[in-house]
Amino acid sequence: MKIIITVVGNDKVGIVAAVSQKLSELQVNIIDMSQTLMHGSFTMMLMGELNAEADFASIKKELSTVGEQIGVSIHVENQELFDAMQNI
């Protein structure tokens, strides 16, 4: 399953490191990523790939916990959601 992870919050040192470190621990392969400052707020989007046995719910929960620890909001959704809405 492909997932989209969005990270939004105040810019500071170490956000990319903390998120990618966690993804590595969770065995989530990053296949695309982009990062920018939008209206002053740090915005990062990553496309990740889960292996077949991965537990989506626990990955989502762990990333959300990382977000709370470093003070950013982290969303995780199945990539099909964005495909369905934005592509014909």
Binding site: I4, T6, D32, S34, M45, H75, F82, M85, Q86
Partner: peptide
């Protein structure tokens, strides 16, 4: 990835 589209969907 279309960053804007993803943001729009989440919003």
């Amino acid at each position: 990835m279309e960053t804007k589209q993803i943001r729009d969907t989440i919003a």
